[in-house]
Amino acid sequence: MHHTDHQRSAGAVPRNPEHRNPRHTDTFIESESVVSTASPVKTTAVAAQGVWKAYGSGEAQVVALRDVSVEFASGAFTAIMGPSGSGKSTLMHCLAGLDTTDRGTVIIGDSTVTGLGDKALTKLRRDKIGFIFQQFNLLPTLTAEENITLPAAIAGTKADPDWVKRIIHTLDLTDRLSHKPTELSGGQQQRVACARALATRPDVVFADEPTGNLDTRSGTEVLNFLRTSVDDFGQTIVMVTHDPTAAAYADRVVFLADGQIVEDMADPTADSVIDKMKHFEELVAAAQEEAA
């Protein structure tokens, strides 16, 4: 069993409930009910089956995804890694119903995403999916609190106040709630984005390089929270990242190269991820030499 403690003693969090850091448990008021949300039976939250995606046509055609099949278990934290242009973002967009697939099916929970119209997709995104982008996550006209409850407000419903309160508390945003995004640091903004993504208790949260624009400290805060939300709230998270240390927070890393899944690694550590990446680079270099 791998632990990441040896890499970042201060920020790392053990991912298994039985080893839960007591420091974090303290921050939850009703830890019992939280545990119950994490179902012990691992069902599939998101699945892609034989997904193809190409951009452009003819000579200029770029195949971004070729026959990708992958499943993401609910209550798990999965990282997607791979070289630039390998199709990570494309895969995520297809999974999240932001983009259409050319072939293959995407399933979220019990609904098939493929073939849904704009209305249904919008509703799906609103009710079942949370998003964290690399930047521009917040509406500048709204306060932090209003941003957090934005999806609920759009739906015309009210987010569960206790739940929102708990997230805000966990993210340490309590005294920042009335601030506008421009009055927040990058790390705080990203934490607000995390809170927003979780506020509706979505089936799955998609995060595309959520720490890409942050310094190490802020990045660590965000990753810690994502980890906590998986461990304590049973949240399902799919995160695209370039950073091996970020990937080490996940339960599993899926490697993409040239639009295909080339490796599926469980319980990653920063070192094992770095090793794999080196290995890929060699493979790519070899392939290029062969081609030349």
Binding site: T122, K123, R125, D127, F133, N137, L138, L150, I154, A155
Partner: peptide
């Protein structure tokens, strides 16, 4: 960008 974000988090075309 903002509109894109709003649409991504569930704002309908009508909204």
């Amino acid at each position: 960008r903002e509109l894109g974000l709003l649409r991504a988090v569930g704002m309908t075309r009508g909204q």
